[in-house]
Deep mutational scan, measured.
Amino acid sequence: TRVETATETAWISLVTALHLVLGLSAVLGLLLLRWQFPAHYRRLRHALW
């Protein structure tokens, strides 16, 4: 049971790290898009909202 718990903890930390990385890359990508294509971003936002 001790090994299982350790594996579970490792998986949880791995998944958390993955989610953090994905979230950060998504935010960075959005910022980059907004910085590179302001007109396109505004049009996209206008279409979405």
Rank of each mutant, 00 (worst) to 15 (best):
W35L: 15
L22E: 04
R43K: 10
P38G: 10
A6M: 11
L30V: 12
W35T: 15
L28P: 03
R34S: 09
L22F: 06
L28E: 06
L30Y: 07
W35Q: 15
Y41T: 14
I12A: 08
E4R: 10
R42G: 11
R45K: 15
A10V: 08
T7E: 05
W35C: 15
L32V: 11
L31W: 13
R2W: 12
L18C: 02
A47P: 04
S25M: 09
H19A: 04
S25H: 05
H19S: 02
G23L: 14
L28S: 05
W11P: 06
A39L: 14
T9M: 13
L32F: 04
R43Y: 06
Y41M: 09
P38V: 08
L24P: 05
L28W: 07
A26I: 09
L44W: 07
R43V: 09
T1W: 09
L32T: 09
A6T: 13
R42H: 12
L31E: 01
E4P: 05
F37N: 02
R43F: 07
A26C: 13
A39F: 11
A10K: 13
S25D: 05
L18G: 01
T16E: 00
L14H: 03
A10E: 11
W35S: 15
V15D: 01
S13M: 11
I12K: 13
L20C: 12
L44I: 12
E8N: 02
E8A: 01
T7L: 12
L44A: 09
R34N: 03
H40C: 14
A39K: 09
H40V: 08
W49R: 03
W11Y: 13
P38D: 15
A47M: 05
L44S: 02
W49C: 06
V21G: 06
G29V: 14
W11G: 01
H40N: 08
L32P: 05
L44M: 13
R43S: 12
T16K: 00
E4C: 08
L28V: 02
A17D: 01
R45V: 08
A47L: 08
L24S: 04
L24I: 11
Y41C: 15
V27N: 05
E8Q: 02
E8K: 07
T7D: 07
R42W: 15
